[in-house]
């Protein structure tokens, strides 16, 4: 929709061109959320498109995804065969409420910075133990674990004007096994729970990532695949009974219930020996 309060568009060629930061400023990536609701408090959009960040960079260390990489581009990524967990990219993208047309514009960074509980790019990058590179307006940079970025529904650690530059997914987590479970109140709808388990090859560990059911991602590391009872206790220790997220996409008790159910399914799957493709 028209954002009628916007007075100016800035289109910098480098992020350094943006020095100050006013309360009505906002970074514009794909625009698919910004333009989907009235934004009466915003006055200036600062377009990231011309910064020209390479969308994807592959190295021995892993995969670097520019915040401005479109979801469509990431979806089309053709990973090295040893990165079995890269299949999570497509699986998570398919958990998005948004259709492929939105993916053509929406960015990975945009989905993360929106910081909705059901943000599937958050699920993806947290489950794969990514780190985010953040650029502050004073020119300093910091890196934080993906897990720590989202702090609540539609809330995150970004300071005013701070920019998510890129997401680094380490090769070691891309090489893991994984199991994903997901449910929605409607067919192909927004996630009520999106839960991912990963396991380091050759070990019996298990890393459980709970998203959508809770306001922010919750991750529980097990050195070995737990028993059913241990799993439930660990979930209860990590998420208080009132710690589930209620919205039109599912009641809190339902999300609590799904979390137990899917975590247990993931536990059982990862307790089985890996099937070689």
């Amino acid at each position: 929709m028209n954002l009628n309060a916007i007075r100016a568009i800035k289109r910098p060629l480098t992020a350094d061109e943006i020095t100050g930061w006013a309360s009505g400023d906002a970074w514009l990536a794909g625009g698919t959320w910004l333009f989907s609701e009235p934004q009466p408090s915003l006055e200036t959009l600062i377009d990231l498109e011309q910064l020209g960040w390479p969308a994807l960079a592959l190295s021995d260390g892993g995969l670097d995804i520019a915040a401005t990489c479109s979801i469509a581009t990431l979806y089309g990524f053709n990973p090295p065969v040893q990165w079995g967990a890269a299949a999570l990219i497509k699986e998570c993208a398919n958990c998005l409420l948004a259709s492929f047309k939105i993916w053509n514009a929406a960015t990975v960074g945009g989905n993360i910075c929106m910081s909705l509980p059901a943000g599937a790019m958050i699920s993806l990058t947290v489950a794969l133990e990514a780190t985010y590179e953040l650029w502050q307006r004073d020119g300093t940079q910091r890196e934080i674990p993906a897990l720590d970025f989202v702090t609540g529904n539609h809330a995150n650690v970004l300071k005013p004007g701070e920019l998510l530059r890129s997401i680094h997914i380490p090769a070691r987590s891309l090489s893991k096994r994984f199991a994903l479970r997901h449910a929605s109140l409607t067919k192909l709808g927004r996630s009520a729970a999106l839960i991912v388990g990963t396991q380091t090859g050759g070990t019996g560990d298990m890393l459980l990532t709970i998203t959508a059911a809770t306001p922010r991602p919750v991750q529980i590391a097990f050195p070995a695949v737990p028993t059913s009872i241990e799993l439930r206790r660990a979930i209860d220790a990590a998420i208080p009974g009132d710690g589930y997220f209620a919205d039109p996409h599912g009641s809190a008790p339902y999300k609590h219930h799904l979390t137990y159910h899917f975590a247990e399914q993931i536990r059982q799957e990862l307790a089985q020996p890996a099937v070689l493709a």
Binding site: M1, T32, F35, S36, D47, A98, K101, I102, N104, A105
Partner: peptide, 27 residues
């Protein structure tokens, strides 16, 4: 809907389908 949910405003940009209600006009 003017919010990217219904697709009634779909157009192609260089042949790629997008929701024009979510596309900044300058782009």
């Amino acid at each position: 809907c003017d919010g990217g949910d219904c697709g009634a405003c779909t157009v192609w940009l260089d042949g790629v389908p997008v929701h024009s209600c979510l596309t900044p006009a300058f782009r």
